[in-house]
Design a protein around this nucleic acid. Structure first.
Lengths: 346, 346
DNA sequence: CTGTTAGCGCTTTCAA
DNA sequence: TTGAAAGCGCTAACAG
C-alpha cells in the first residue's frame, strides 16, 4: 500500500507538506505542490480513509438503517436504497447497509459508537420511532425517509400526501366521477403506526370532500382475497361508487377479480386507480392500471442529500416541514368517464 | 467517546491487557478479565473500528459493486443486496453499497485502495468482466453473484441454469406438452455479454431436446410491444407450439395481449411459463403465471458467505463449479394440459 | 499473567 | 513556506 510517506519521500518533502498540498489545508508553493501531485499520481496514491477518519473524526460514510419488514421488501422500499446510494456517491459519500437482525436499537447504538459513521438515514419510520430518540440523545446526525408524528424539528424527506390526495380527486373529478371509495392497507403489519397508511387515508378523504365527491372507506385489504371481498362489500354498501382507489397492489389483484365476478369491466363499469404503486408494476395488470407512482428514488436521494447538507453545515436547521416530494400520475387504461346510466353495468 | 484507555483506567490495568481481555487474544486471569468486562459494560465501551482497522488491516466491511443499469433496478437485483447485507450482518460484517457513477474500474480501484474494505462482492457480472482482472491483479478478495465465461478459479454463486432448463421441460412434459418455444431477453442491453441470457438460452434448448420436445426460439423480446409481436411471429412460424416460456416480464405482458388478440385463452389454448420472475410479480398477472422464481436473496446470501469464508480461511480455494442455487417452481394458473385437438383453439 | 513500547497512516499544532 | 513532533484509538511484539 502506498502511504503518504512514500509520496513525501519521492517529492522530497515532509509528510505534513504532502498532506497540506493534497488537501489544500494550508498554502504550499506552487512548484512544490506540483511536485507532490505528480509523485502521488505516479505512485497511484490513495489516502487511507481509516487513518484519516481516526484523526479527523469524519469518514464520509452514512448508514441506511432499515428494520426488515416481515413481509419482505418491495420494489418501492429498495428504490430508497438505490437513490440514497447514488446521491451519496455523487457527493463523495458511501452508504452502509444496516439491516437490523434482532434489536434495532442495539444495532444502531453499536454502529454509531464505533466511529465509523458520519450520520444515519432512517427508513421505515414509524409515527413514534424510538430510533429518533436514540440518535437525538447520542447526538448523531440523522435524516428520515418518511416522518414521525411530530417531525417539526427533524430533517426528513417524505411523500407529499396532501398533493397526492388532490391529484387523485382531481383526476377523478376531471373524468366526471362524483362518488369514489378508497381501499387502504389495513396497516396491521405496523399496528396502525405506519405513516403512509395513516396520512394517505386522511388526505384522500379530505381531498374527496374538498372536491365535493361522495366518499367511502373502511374496506381495507392487504391481500388478493381481502381485496376481492372488500370490493364486493364496498359496492354492496355504496352502489353509487364509480371509482375506486387502491393502495395495496396485492389487494388490487383481488379488486380486479371481484369486478370480473360481477361480470363488469374495468374501466367501463368501474374506474380503478392505484396509489403508491410503481408504474412498472401497474403496467403488469390487465388493463394497465392508472397509478400515482411513489417517488422512491427521489426520496432516497433527498434523504441522503439532506443528511450530507446537515453534516457540511453544522449551523443549518432542518427545512420547516421537511422536503415533500410529489407522486407522479401515470395514466393507464383503468380510468375513464363514468357511465351515465348506472343500471347498464349491472 | 469512550476509549479503551478509559476502560483500562477504570479496571486498573494497562490498555493492552484490556484489549487482550476483550478480544481473547491472550490469556488473562479470570478475575482481571471480569473486572475489565464490567468496566467496559458500565462505560458502554464500543471499540473504534477505524483504529482497530488501521492496525489489524481488517475492517469487516465488504463492498457490493453494481454498475447502475440505465433502466433502474428490478426487484430481483435489489434482493441480491438485501440477502448479502443480511448474511454479512449475521456474520459480523457490514455491506457498503458501491454504485458506479462513471467509470466502474476507477471507482473500484479507489475503494480498494483506501484500506476500508476487506473484500468485494460483484453484481451484474459480464461474461468477460474487467473488474475480475482488476481485483485479481490488486489481490483483493472478491466473490461474484453470477459468473464470467470461465469462472473455474473464482468464488461465485449463480443460478443453476441446467436445473432450471430441466425443471421447465419437466413441468411441461409432465403436463403432456410436446412442443415448446422460448422467448428470451434480447440481451441488447448487454451486447450479448450477459450470462443469464446466454446460459438460459442454451440450457432450455438442451433440456427441451433432452426431453424429446420440439423446440423453437429466436423470437426474443424485452418490451410488451416486442413480446406481442414475438408471440404472433412465433405462432405463425410454429403453429404446433402449445407452451411458451418467457424470460422478460415486460414481454410477458405483450405475450398475454397477443393471446387475447387471437381470441385465445391462457392456459387452455396456450400454456405460459415465466422464468426468473419473482412469484410476487407473477401473481400480478391474470391469470397468475407459473414461474421459476430466481433465488435472489439466496444468491446474495451465498455470495456474501463465500466471500467471508474466503476471508477467514486464506488457504481455502473456491468450490469447484461455484455454488449453484436452484430456482423454485411456483405453479400459477397459466400452465395446463395441452388441447388434444389443436383446431379447437383457432 | 501483565505492563511497556512501538507503531498503523494520517492531520494538526508549533517552530523554524 | 516548510519540517518535526504529537497523537487519534487500537493491536502486537517484547519484556518482566
Amino acid at each position: 500500500m502506498i502511504s503518504l510517506r512514500d509520496v513525501a519521500k519521492r517529492a522530497n518533502v515532509a509528510v505534513s507538506t504532502a498532506s497540506a498540498a493534497l488537501n489544500g489545508t494550508r498554502p504550499v508553493a506552487a512548484e512544490t505542490k506540483q511536485r507532490i501531485e505528480s509523485a502521488a499520481a505516479e505512485l497511484g496514491y490513495r489516502p487511507n480513509v481509516l487513518a484519516r477518519g481516526l484523526v479527523s473524526k469524519r469518514t464520509r460514510i452514512l448508514a441506511l438503517h432499515y428494520p426488515a419488514p416481515a413481509s419482505g421488501f418491495g420494489l418501492t422500499e429498495m428504490q430508497f436504497a438505490t437513490g440514497a446510494a447514488a446521491a451519496a456517491s455523487e457527493l463523495g459519500y458511501h452508504l452502509l447497509l444496516s439491516p437490523d437482525n434482532a434489536d434495532p436499537l442495539e444495532e444502531l447504538r453499536y454502529l454509531t459508537g464505533t466511529g465509523l459513521l458520519d450520520g444515519v438515514l432512517l427508513m421505515e419510520v414509524r409515527l413514534d420511532d424510538a430510533r429518533v430518540e436514540l440518535l437525538t440523545a447520542q447526538n448523531v446526525p440523522f435524516a428520515l425517509i418518511g416522518r414521525t408524528r411530530r417531525p417539526e424539528h427533524l430533517w426528513f424527506a417524505d411523500i407529499d400526501f396532501a398533493r397526492l390526495g388532490a391529484d387523485v380527486a382531481g383526476h377523478l373529478t376531471g373524468l366526471g366521477h362524483r362518488a369514489m371509495a378508497f381501499i387502504n392497507h389495513t396497516g396491521a403489519a405496523y399496528a396502525g403506526e405506519y405513516g403512509p397508511v395513516v396520512r394517505i387515508g386522511q388526505e384522500i378523504a379530505a381531498a374527496a370532500k374538498e372536491a365535493g365527491m361522495s366518499y367511502a372507506d373502511g374496506f381495507d385489504a392487504d391481500t388478493a382475497e381481502q381485496g376481492r371481498a372488500a370490493l364486493h362489500d364496498l359496492l354492496d354498501a355504496h352502489p353509487e361508487t364509480t371509482a375506486v382507489t387502491v393502495f395495496s397492489d396485492q389487494a388490487a389483484v383481488g379488486v380486479l377479480a371481484a369486478v370480473e365476478d360481477r361480470g363488469w369491466r374495468v374501466p367501463d363499469d368501474l374506474t380503478v386507480v392505484m396509489v403508491l404503486t410503481s408504474a412498472q408494476v401497474a403496467a403488469m395488470f390487465r388493463p394497465q392500471l392508472t397509478t400515482l407512482e411513489p417517488p422512491s428514488l427521489e426520496l432516497g436521494r433527498r434523504g441522503a442529500q439532506m443528511l450530507i447538507e446537515q453534516l457540511s453545515d453544522e449551523t443549518a436547521g432542518p427545512p420547516p416541514g421537511g422536503e415533500l416530494v410529489p407522486c407522479r400520475l401515470v395514466i393507464g387504461d383503468s380510468s375513464t368517464t363514468p357511465r351515465d346510466d348506472k343500471g347498464v353495468r349491472a
